[in-house]
């Protein structure tokens, strides 16, 4: 992985062997640019790249490419997310070209939450292609300079290709194979679902390392600090594919009134410490949902500052 495929900051940080630290920023439900900039600025200089979500949970928001460009103008490096729910292969390929043309260098390929979750459940779902095929599409456009129909791309989009991975979804035994499949399809890096069940994640990483996957792809461990006991309960019961052990809920509850958030951060910091040492983990993806202003403090306490300049 010595030669750069896209030359993004994230790719350079990872290829130089640094422990990567990425963040996340959800675009506003409107055209509120100042609000987006305010949230994003908390992450400036604190993370290597910022994931910009694409109508996450199927709720309409400012488009991820537009918000990514706003971040780029602000001097942050976006990790442009794209889901397969809302676009067919024509729109997908043209957006890939568009974001690359405008200076975006990282792209995370996702299937997307089903529209029944969101605020337009009446909409038609597209899913012309799936996330695996999306990864492969970007790779084919980038490395072979070909569209899905085999015709030539006039200037290939050099993007650093990301994928998601949920070690906690089922069937567990297949999850590591699915990761291998995404890597074969073209993923350069993966960001995992929020990790709470450390035992299960350790087992997952052991299997990934045994298969040598960490040598073919950078694996970033997903961390979302719990803000409250309510959030932990919501995550454990309402969010599919999320594994929140009861012991963690108990720990947050045990912290006492008004102290659960600090306990949630402490747990996240302990996780990050372990990830730094865990074989096969190349970095952390911190998803501080609507808690962007806490990221600098978490980064500081996690000892990941200053971020490397590469």
């Amino acid at each position: 992985m010595s030669e750069h495929k896209a030359g993004s900051n994230l790719e350079k940080v990872l290829s130089a062997g640094h422990f990567a630290f990425t963040g996340e920023c959800g675009p506003p439900q409107g055209a509120n640019v100042p609000h987006l900039i305010e949230k994003a600025n908390h992450l400036k200089g604190v993370v290597d790249a910022v994931n910009v979500t694409d109508n996450q949970t199927a709720v309409v928001r400012m488009s991820s490419w537009a918000a990514s460009l706003i971040l780029l103008e602000q001097g942050l490096e976006p990790n442009f997310q794209m889901v397969c729910r809302d676009r067919n292969r024509l729109a997908i390929q043209s957006d890939i070209l568009g974001v690359y043309a405008m200076g975006i260098r990282n792209m995370l390929c996702l299937s997307g939450d089903h529209q029944s979750f969101g605020n337009h459940p009446e909409s038609k779902n597209v899913f012309d292609i799936d996330s695996m095929q999306l990864i492969h599409t970007v790779k084919t456009m980038r490395d072979e300079g070909k569209f899905l129909n085999g015709s030539d791309v006039d200037v290939a989009p050099k993007l650093f290709i990301g994928a998601a991975c949920n070690p906690f979804a089922e069937p567990f035994d297949f999850r590591v194979y699915r990761l291998a499949k995404k890597i074969s399809a073209g993923a350069d890096f993966v960001q995992t679902q929020c990790i709470y069940n450390m035992d299960k994640f350790r087992e997952f990483m052991k299997r990934a390392v045994d298969m040598g996957l960490h040598e073919k792809c950078y694996i970033l461990a997903g961390v979302t600090p719990m803000k409250s006991v309510g959030m932990a309960l919501y995550m454990s019961k309402q969010v599919p594919g999320m594994d929140v052990p009861q012991a963690l809920v108990k720990r947050l509850r045990g912290a006492g009134k008004g102290k659960a958030a600090e306990e949630g951060i402490k747990f996240a910091l302990e996780q990050i410490e372990e990830f730094k040492e865990m074989e096969g983990v190349a970095g952390v993806h911190l998803m501080a949902i609507e808690w962007e202003h806490k990221v600098p403090e978490i980064a500081e306490r996690a000892g990941v500052l200053p971020r490397p300049v590469v």
Binding site: H114, D130, S131, C165, A169, E170, G241
Partner: peptide, 19 residues
């Protein structure tokens, strides 16, 4: 629910679909 040809997605839980 997503007509995936390379599934399962990350929403599969206890044999049930995320929807």
């Amino acid at each position: 629910s997503k007509s995936l040809l390379n599934g399962p997605c990350g929403g599969s839980s206890n044999g049930k679909c995320e929807i």
